[in-house]
Design a protein around this nucleic acid. Structure first.
Lengths: 136, 136
DNA sequence: CTAAAACTTAAAGTCAGCTTTAAGTCAAGC
DNA sequence: GCTTGACTTAAAGCTGACTTTAAGTTTTAG
């Protein structure tokens, strides 16, 4: 498989594949006449990287846990630890977003004469601190 | 009030205040010997900007709705429209994060022999599309 | 009066995750 | 053999919300 086909199948730009390789997330493949040729396994790998990315893991984090990933190896404690940490981050993000939602709904429904009044009427200085204490 | 005091009271860096001024979110204040001097109202304005920022509005968006903000003017339809849009974005983000949470929990609890098996066993290619269809 | 702290500016740097550009090489179809 | 499209590289550019830097000015405390 050439890089263009791999990219297309993974719904990525070819430059992203090269970028992953440069970062060490993807092993340098065989080359034919200077051009990269990929085995079908590479697609799995790329999809796994994308999947982890969608889960909110950064590329260095993905590199970290893929580096310990052997073919058919059990899901290790390192991965579990990372995933648990990410889970709590996601939960914190949800909690924060729910507070935001409540605030936005409050602002949308209120009948204050001005936005400023509205903000103070809702006692947002307290909520502001809660909202500001987001994830990451 | 000098810029340092304003910044401290708003829990910001002074450079952020100057940045807001440069973007047109904050009116250029009086100057004494070339240095900015702020009225107490400026603090309200800055806090309102920060608050909107915490709500997920970008600085251009904030500029847009603050530009129509008059002292004690009623909350206008423009603001309502922006806020409603932001609300739906926040809701979409929450929905996405909840799916992520479910997936992470599934991955953490499963007993698959390998991460790759696990990912395919959970039918993540479908969820992947759902998760990928996030806000923004 | 002096030293330090706070201020001024424009421009460049930071972070992530890529994309774009420039200038060139390789492969495929006719 | 020639054209077109896919590929190669390193380096620069993009977004957003600032921060940092460098070099200079003003204010304040002692």
């Amino acid at each position: 498989m050439r890089i263009g086909e791999l990219a297309q199948r993974a719904c990525l730009n070819a430059s992203a594949i090269r970028y992953y390789e440069k970062l060490g997330l993807l092993a340098p493949p065989h080359r034919s006449g200077g051009q990269r040729r990929y085995s079908p396994d590479a697609l799995d790998r790329v999809l796994l990287i994308r999947f982890a990315g969608e889960m909110g893991f950064s590329l260095p984090e993905i590199k970290l846990f893929l580096s310990g990933l052997r073919e058919n190896a059990p899901v290790g404690p390192r991965w579990k630890k990372l995933a648990a940490r990410k889970l709590s981050q996601v939960e914190a993000g949800i909690a924060r977003s729910l507070r935001l939602k409540t605030l936005l709904q409050g602002l949308l429904c209120c009948r204050c004469a001005s936005l400023k009044q509205c903000v103070t009427a809702l006692g947002l200085s307290e909520n502001l601190r809660l909202v500001a204490a987001g994830p990451r």
